[in-house]
Design a protein around this nucleic acid. Structure first.
Lengths: 205, 205
DNA sequence: ATTAAATATGAGCTATTACTCGTATTTTGA
DNA sequence: TCAAAATACGAGTAATAGCTCATATTTAAT
């Protein structure tokens, strides 16, 4: 039962070109999702757009869902790392400045490719059970929890619930903005800032 | 071009039994979506669960999407009507009482069948372009806009943006609660209340 | 050089599933 | 009572799309 069967779940790039292939596939998947939606989002279309054969695609991804999961995960990781960087970069600064730094990251992420962000957001809900994705979510969560805790604020509903709500408020306003096709990043930021600060019991200056 | 062709887009129940059939189909669709998710959500499964032949199903719905759209629309209309009733029922009461009445409706709607609510929420995003659905959204929107306007409050970002944000905050927290499987309706209400009131510049008592 | 492993290819298989259509049954109206 | 309309039926069709596999090519190791 433990001998060397067919490599099974696949995806073990060893050489450099295979890493390029994997990358091309994910990039193509994102472009199709962004430009054609779920309609055109087929494995054959992804392979074609990536300039790769369908066989190669299935050499690195066991099935279509795995491609989507990898795409969503990569996006979540990118956001988390940017948040981490912002948090590190504003070390020592007062709470409000740190919060703004985080908001800037979230809004930049949303505004960079709004349509793709919306599609990924939808897929993210569908794949919410994925352990790897949950891990990244929890990491981002922990980051915000830490910020709130070290702020010394007296939180309205305890640390955990407040963290959940701050997340929900930020994502709720962001997603809605995405759905409505809003383009004013600064205005969006001001509104989210207001919502979060007032939730936390701070007078938005 | 205007003669009596095949009835075309279908759905014209005339007798009583056909209305029952249509109802059974929508009920079955909801049950499947709730219990099996998109996996088991096939037209044949819906028909079987409804105790109706697949042929009958397609006599009243031109395609699968139309079933989903009808389901989502019915849900949105039900929520809107409940909001309307709550608004009417609290006529003359102070703003805070009216707001609470509306929140009660939203939370009751969310808590009634949380899993179904989550699935419908996801489909709602996909069908956001549907004119009939947009109309109901706009109606609910108008209702909240009206409340805010007649509250006499000085809104942080103008009537339109504030309405959008209040919606986003409420739905954001609700959806997140649904995803996390929260069951405490009262706690949920308190948090949403706090978020909305503080956003509006009111001290949550 | 030679061999083995890694990678690439794409025609085609297969399973799923949305949907049709010819027919049977029930209801309505006169 | 008896047509005609409305409704119900479900086996079968057709098309899509996920995925396999036998084969070819490239890279790495000795």
């Amino acid at each position: 039962m433990s001998s060397a069967e067919t490599p099974a779940p696949r995806k073990r790039p060893v050489q450099a070109r295979s890493a390029l292939t994997v990358d091309a596939i994910l990039t193509a998947a994102a472009h199709i999702l962004e430009g054609e939606g779920m309609e055109g989002y087929t494995t054959n279309a992804i392979a074609a757009r990536a300039g790769v054969s369908i066989g190669s695609l299935y050499q690195y991804f066991p099935n279509k869902e795995a491609i989507t999961a990898a795409l969503v995960l990569a996006d979540a990781e990118r956001l988390y790392e940017a948040l981490q960087a912002a948090s590190d970069g504003s070390a020592g600064a007062p709470f409000l400045a740190r919060l703004e730094a985080l908001l800037d990251v979230v809004i930049a992420h949303q505004m960079e490719r709004p349509v793709l962000a919306r599609m990924i957001d939808m897929e993210e809900r569908r794949l919410a059970h994925d352990p790897a994705l949950q891990a990244v979510h929890e990491a981002g969560f922990a980051l915000v929890r830490q910020e709130l805790q070290s702020s010394g604020l007296s939180l309205p509903f305890g640390l955990e619930a407040s963290t959940v709500d701050v997340f929900a408020i930020v994502l709720g306003i962001c997603d809605t903005a995405g759905e409505r096709g809003e383009t004013d990043g600064d205005g969006l930021k001001a509104r989210i800032r207001h919502a979060v600060l007032s939730y936390l019991g701070l007078r938005p200056s």
